[in-house]
Design a protein around this nucleic acid. Structure first.
Lengths: 205, 205
DNA sequence: GACGACGTACCGACCAGTTGGTATGTACTT
DNA sequence: AAGTACATACCAACTGGTCGGTACGTCGTC
């Protein structure tokens, strides 16, 4: 305690619940995850849960936002931003997405992609939170794609945004097939094809 | 009734429940769909439900198999098989997938893709049923893709199977983004990119 | 009259959310 | 410096309703 900063760095009930939500919901899905499940995983009581979140739905929205933050920081600090050539950065991003396809399914797949399929017409607030997360992450790719398009003189059908969203669709779809086949590595197939597509689009051999 | 054939053509409780499962589960997801929901949608009682299906999980497996049958027949009778050129058939398939992106979200999206994300590590039997459905549908594309690869002298990274599975991954991912953005037409973006990829792979302008 | 195809009524377990409380800090008053 | 008032963070026990599944009765057909 002694010298404690104003925010964060303290594993309080709220952040423990959010961490728990990421792993438990990714494993069991949103609906199948009970509030008690989350409390047990976080090591807190139900009272603490409803002190910090007004409802289970409210926690899901917070979890999606938390997911955006943590993954945002993760990708921001990753190494694929270093190449000078913007196209190389895009391809390095895809290599990175492929490289992190290791470990348990729940550690690899996407929280918001899983949730939004379940709740897309039962909970608009969760759906919107998931949409913000996906489009937000896609947005981090737009600048590099647009720069590469200009540099290589490539005309993109749906613009840089369209291609950025497509990369996310492919990755989400890769997770669906990986889950169906119960093997994380199955997702690599589609990322390989996506990389090939980008190379062909921009005229790389 | 009078002259009734041995199978089908009679809207009995079992098939009404399967039909109901397709629409209700696609809307609400598997876990959020209750047995009572299905009974109400099918217009039957709970007794009828458990007469035909030993459990909710058992119904989900049957629904996934039923989904394979109905979609299998739907695509088999579709018009995209007519072109002589196998590549044209593949591209016509993609055009067809794009053309049917109309109407309500639940009428457009994929039952097994939705279910498998939810239950992939809570119900192996449902997961396997979903996997059979997806890989089975992908299998119907392999022959055309392989034929096109030979005809156009294209070498496919992961073989014809790999590309066939990739098409399904893209379509599944397109549904995820469409649900997130709450607009069926958002799925068209990725199908456009996928078609472009296939054209580039096989050397079409 | 036996059997398959349902319907009705019900059960125990579980689930989201509530209630009422305790412990600790903090700001304001005197 | 001490006391008062209030807010925050959390806990344990409980509640009303829901869920998957069961028990058993009934109807129609062979």
């Amino acid at each position: 305690m002694s010298i404690e900063n104003k925010k964060s760095a303290k594993p309080d009930a709220r952040s423990k619940l959010l961490e728990a939500a990421l792993s438990v919901i990714r494993m069991k899905g949103y609906t199948a995850t009970t509030v008690d499940d989350l409390c047990k995983a976080a090591g807190v009581t139900k009272g603490a849960f409803f002190h910090h979140f007004s409802s289970k739905e409210n926690l899901a929205v917070a979890a999606a936002d938390f997911w955006s933050e943590t993954t945002g920081a993760f990708f921001e600090n990753a190494s694929f931003h270093s190449p000078e050539d913007p196209l190389d950065r895009v391809l390095a991003y895809l290599d990175f997405r492929k490289a992190i396809l290791q470990g348990e399914m729940a550690e690899v797949t996407c929280l918001v992609g899983t949730m939004v399929q379940e709740v897309h017409d039962t909970s608009p607030v969760i759906r919107d939170a998931c949409n913000r997360s996906i489009t937000g992450h896609a947005g981090t790719l737009v600048a590099d794609i647009a720069e590469a398009a200009e540099l290589y003189g490539a005309t993109l059908p749906g613009g840089a945004e369209g291609l950025a969203l497509h990369t996310q669709a492919v990755i989400q779809g890769a997770f669906v097939l990986a889950k169906a086949g119960n093997d994380v590595r199955l997702a690599a197939n589609s990322i390989d094809h996506l990389k090939r597509y980008v190379e062909l689009l921009f005229g790389r051999t």
